[in-house]
């Protein structure tokens, strides 16, 4: 990751905009109250999407191709964040990451400190919230691959793992990519869970939280710009997904 470094509690990581000097950004007319939250959002969302894309695609493949019982239950369980209020998700994360328990001990041994109120905590919250999108899109796309291509590959003598890599996944790539894009968009747009896990630490403010603060404190000009940027990004991402074709995960 460009400019990534290990972040401590509340430390603002240099991120995507670490590549671009602040003076250039100022010269372009992009004020710090935009690129600050924007870089936090982008950095967190990119990290979250990398994790989600790999795990979500893998799990989607297992659920699509496997024949073990309880596949429906597993998909339902992992899809819960889509139906839960973000405050509930945030609460669970806060208590699991912050309060006593097995998760906390694991984090402390991995990261040296609990993840609440840190940048990494934001990434975790976004992973949880965006995972269902990637999972469902991937599972739907992989299930939708014409089984006969795989049969032809079996007749050619290819072992199962090569069939997965050379036939199934390439044929499903549009839906899988769409799932990753949706997950990225969802991560960028997360508000409730992020706010609860990370608090309003100024160094770890994402775009949606920045907009909320702007409205709350009455800075209408800032609010308008922040809202417009996020609207444009969401529209662009959705448009990209629609170009990738019809995959119906629900």
């Amino acid at each position: 990751m460009p400019g990534a470094c290990v972040g401590g509690t509340g430390e603002h990581r240099t991120s995507v905009t670490g590549l671009v000097p602040h003076s250039w950004l100022n010269a372009l007319g992009i004020p710090p109250w935009v690129w600050g939250p924007l870089s936090v959002s982008l950095h967190a969302a990119i990290e979250a999407t990398l994790v989600v894309a790999v795990v979500g695609c893998a799990l989607g493949f297992l659920l699509a191709k496997g024949s073990f019982p309880g596949r429906g239950a597993i998909e339902t369980a992992f899809s819960l964040p889509m139906a839960l209020p973000p405050t509930v998700v945030g609460w669970y994360l806060l208590t699991q990451l912050g309060g006593p328990g097995p998760v906390r001990s694991a984090e402390v041994s991995l990261f040296g400190h609990p993840l609440t109120f840190t940048f990494t905590g934001i990434v975790v919250a976004q992973i949880v919230e965006s995972f269902p999108y990637c999972l469902r899109f991937s599972r739907a796309a992989i299930s939708g691959v014409d089984a006969r291509f795989e049969q032809a590959a079996r007749a050619m003598g290819l072992p199962q793992w090569r069939i997965a890599l050379l036939v199934t996944l390439p044929l499903a790539r549009r839906g899988v990519v769409a799932g990753a894009v949706m997950a990225f968009g969802r991560a960028l747009g997360d508000f409730g869970a992020t706010m609860i896990v990370a608090g309003s630490v100024p160094m770890a403010t994402t775009m949606p939280i920045a907009l909320y603060n702007a409205v709350f404190f009455g800075s209408h000009g800032q609010a308008m710009v922040l809202a417009l940027v996020q609207l444009a990004v969401a529209f662009g991402l959705l448009f990209g997904v629609s170009r990738l074709g019809k995959v119906r995960p629900w």
């Binding site: 079996r154 050619m156 003598g157 072992p159 050379l166």
Partner: peptide, 20 residues
């Protein structure tokens, strides 16, 4: 014996060539 190990060749009605 799995399909892969049967040493057969198959030609399908619509070819089923990998499009990518």
């Amino acid at each position: 014996v799995s399909t892969q190990k049967r040493r057969i060749g198959m030609v399908f009605q619509d070819g089923l060539l990998l499009p990518h």
